[in-house]
């Protein structure tokens, strides 16, 4: 076995170990989350119920009330991590995220309009968010299109349109009654509170196949990172591959946003943190997924329990965790650039 082979297989082993540990931790936190609440259950009891035991009361508490939220946190976290990884890889920018194309801001506009105009039932809010987010992303992509999508132009147009939409959002929030405005702000921060199967299941069913497709595109993503010329030499149709990956990444974010609102920072931080743990050179999507799942489920546990019975929106916790992590990283890395 040659040296490069050995190095590669060692780094693969490390990646595998990191992924397994992260997933195990995510599941563990999920089980703790299911077990905590007004009717606390030990991890053994939770596992017992999950494997078909337990009393009727325990079964309905675990399976009907608490499991959807925990599962949603894990799956949504994975989706956000992968989505962020794709955008960071494509833009070659550690701050890249679906928000570059205004998705979150547009989704908030759509949800606000739905909440204020038609009363904000769950379905109306979701549809409003999806329409707003996708519409904004399309608008920005279209406006930035000029014989090819130039990265810098895309970002500049994205900032302009997002700023206009953010202003509209602030204006709407200011005009609304204070209760409506606060409910909207909770949604706008991203929250998993009160997630039911009816809400979580459709999103999870959309996310899982898209996630699989995106992860399968990970190799193409790595080749695109080499630059367009090198990627083309390796047989990648670059414009098409890029568009496909963007569409998949946006679909992941859209499915999460429709249910939970724009949860900030998981997409930004998960790929970076995963890259450091695995010691890999580029963005790797599978570790990003595992890290995203672990981060979001942990953040949601904190959001539920930190100020219980008051439920914080999980997005506020992810922002604080992610921000502190980024600050720590910057302090540690000294004058080295992030990527």
């Amino acid at each position: 076995m040659s040296v490069t082979h050995r190095v590669r297989s060692r780094s693969r082993t490390r990646t595998l170990i990191v992924c397994v540990i992260l997933l195990a931790l995510a599941l563990l936190v999920g089980i703790i989350m299911i077990g905590s609440g007004d009717y606390p259950l030990g991890p053994d009891r939770v596992l017992g119920v999950l494997f078909g035991g337990g009393s009727d009361l325990e079964r309905s508490i675990v399976l009907s009330w608490r499991a959807p939220r925990a599962l949603a946190a894990i799956v949504f976290g994975a989706a956000l991590g992968v989505s962020g990884g794709v955008f960071q890889s494509l833009t070659r920018n550690p701050l890249g995220s679906p928000d570059v194309i205004g998705f979150g801001t547009g989704a908030y506009t759509g949800a606000l309009l739905a909440i204020m105009l038609v009363g904000g039932s769950y379905v109306a809010t979701s549809i409003g968010a999806l329409a707003g987010g996708l519409g904004t992303a399309l608008l920005i992509y279209f406006l930035a299109w000029r014989r090819g999508s130039h990265g810098y132009r895309l970002i500049l147009v994205g900032i302009g349109i997002s700023a206009a939409l953010a202003a509209i959002n602030q204006w709407l929030v200011l005009r609304a009654d204070i209760e409506v405005a606060m409910a909207a702000a909770v949604w706008g921060a991203g929250s998993l509170g009160g997630t039911t199967w009816a809400q979580a299941l459709p999103a999870i069913l959309v996310i899982l196949p898209v996630l699989a497709l995106t992860l399968a595109g990970g190799r193409t993503l790595g080749m695109l990172e080499l630059g367009d010329d090198a990627a083309q030499a390796l047989g990648v149709r670059t414009e098409r591959a890029r568009l496909m990956l963007v569409v998949l990444a946006v679909a992941l974010t859209a499915a999460v946003t429709a249910v939970a609102g724009p949860i900030a920072f998981v997409a930004l931080v998960a790929p970076q943190l995963a890259r450091r743990l695995t010691g890999s050179a580029g963005i790797a999507l599978i570790p990003a997924a595992c890290m995203g799942a672990f981060l979001l489920v942990t953040a949601d546990l904190l959001a539920q329990r930190m100020f219980a019975p008051i439920q914080l929106p999980v997005g506020l916790v992810t922002v604080c965790l992610g921000g502190v992590y980024l600050l720590w990283l910057l302090g540690r890395e000294g004058s080295k650039r992030l990527r």
Binding site: V186, A189, L312, V319, C320, G323, L326
Partner: peptide
């Protein structure tokens, strides 16, 4: 990056407190 990170943390705390 420091500005982005600290801004995110401060606004997260601010929004959280405001929601209470």
């Amino acid at each position: 990056l420091s500005g982005v990170a600290l801004g995110a943390v401060l606004s997260g705390i601010g929004t959280g407190l405001a929601l209470l």
